[in-house]
Simulated assay, not measured.
Amino acid sequence: MMNKMRGKGCCRRHGQKNCKTLLEVCPGERCRIRRHFAKGAVRQRFLDLGFVPNAEVEVIRLATLGDPIEIRVTNYYVTLRKAEAAQIEVQAV
């Protein structure tokens, strides 16, 4: 499932090399949200949590097995599963 989401509409196809999914961001890196690949209730949840276009986020740490991922959005912390993080396209700051 994640491989489908990772390649779907990714901006690498359009020549922008500094784009990737939130899943591919290393701990300590900061980036900006570009868009979501999610639909329906999941997309609305992302928006409610502050994952809106141009919002700056930072990956804080990964769990031992890499799932979930802790992310700082503005002034609070959110944990996302790998499958959710793969649905958010980001751009390096």
Rank of each mutant, 00 (worst) to 15 (best):
N3T: 06
L22A: 02
A92C: 14
G40C: 02
T64N: 14
G15L: 13
V59M: 14
T74P: 02
N54I: 03
V78E: 10
C19V: 00
P27M: 07
R12P: 00
Q87A: 02
A41M: 08
L22S: 01
T74V: 04
A86L: 06
G28W: 14
A55Y: 10
V52G: 07
R34S: 07
I60Q: 11
Q16W: 08
Y76S: 11
G66T: 01
I33R: 08
A86Y: 03
E84I: 13
I33E: 06
G66I: 03
K39E: 06
G15I: 04
A41G: 05
K39C: 06
G66W: 03
A63R: 09
V52I: 08
R45T: 13
V42S: 13
P53E: 05
E24W: 03
K4T: 09
Q44K: 13
K82I: 05
R30D: 14
L23P: 00
L62K: 12
K8S: 09
D48V: 03
Y77R: 10
C11K: 02
C10D: 12
N54Y: 15
R30M: 08
T21F: 06
R72K: 15
R43H: 12
T64E: 14
R43G: 07
V57W: 12
I33C: 04
V90Y: 02
V42W: 04
L65E: 10
R13G: 15
P27T: 01
D67G: 02
V52T: 07
R32C: 09
A41W: 02
R12Y: 12
A92Q: 14
R35C: 07
A63F: 09
A92W: 07
L62S: 00
F46C: 13
Q44R: 11
V42T: 15
C19R: 01
P27W: 00
G50R: 05
L49D: 11
M1K: 15
I71Q: 09
A63N: 15
E58C: 12
G15K: 14
H36I: 01
G40P: 00
I71C: 13
L23N: 01
Q16R: 10
L23Q: 11
R34V: 04
N18K: 06
E58S: 13
C10W: 05
I88W: 00
I88L: 05
E70W: 14
T64A: 09
V42A: 15
I69A: 06
L62H: 01
A85L: 04
A41D: 08
D67H: 12
C26S: 07
T64K: 03
E58M: 11
G40L: 02
L80R: 10
V73H: 13
K39F: 05
D48C: 12
R35A: 05
G9Y: 03
R32A: 05
R12W: 02
V78K: 14
A83G: 05
M2D: 06
N18Q: 05
C19H: 00
I71V: 15
L62C: 11
V52P: 01
Q44V: 09
T21M: 08
C11T: 07
L47K: 14
K39T: 13
H14W: 02
T21W: 01
L80W: 12
P53W: 05
D48S: 05
P27N: 00
N18S: 07
R81W: 07
V93C: 15
K17H: 11
C11A: 10
C11G: 12
